[in-house]
Write a protein that binds this DNA or RNA. Structure first.
Lengths: 63, 63
DNA sequence: GTGAATTGTCAAGATAACTTTCCATTTTGA
DNA sequence: TCAAAATGGAAAGTTATCTTGACAATTCAC
């Protein structure tokens, strides 16, 4: 899956740590997802969508 | 997470095996997801949404 | 230009998502 | 009614997701 996390973070001027804190996951998890090393679980994808106020499909797309 | 798989299958008169075949996963995976034993991965959630022609959020909700 | 913050990544370990095989129970239909 | 199909779930194994801790490289602010 591809994702728009880096851009969405940049728009809000959030560090990976800021996002990790908001999501209650480790910074390494945010980095791994953002750089495409692995996909988030579905519950985490929902939390990410919530944090950005977007639908999952607006953040994640198949590659 | 809760999900509407059982109803969506019933609307289409699909067995768990029918859905599993369409998704290219085992029938036990469909059963486990449907009965809430575990959540699908994000890629599988996307495939499920595709198969039903719905958004992920229309199929899965937090519980 | 130096120090702090940010980012990328690795390693090792835990837990969750999936597989195949198998069996018991329930539902369906002729 | 009785067989076939469908469902629910256990066990054991693999892979993916996530953790903490660490370290190097890059970017940022003064």
């Amino acid at each position: 899956m591809k994702n728009r996390l880096k851009v969405l973070r940049a728009e809000r001027d959030w560090s990976q740590q800021d996002l990790a804190t908001a999501l209650e996951v480790s910074r390494q998890s945010v980095n791994a997802i953002e750089t495409g090393r692995y996909d988030p679980s579905l519950p985490l994808a929902f939390r990410i969508a919530d944090v950005f106020g977007l639908a999952i499909e607006e953040i994640f797309q198949r590659d």
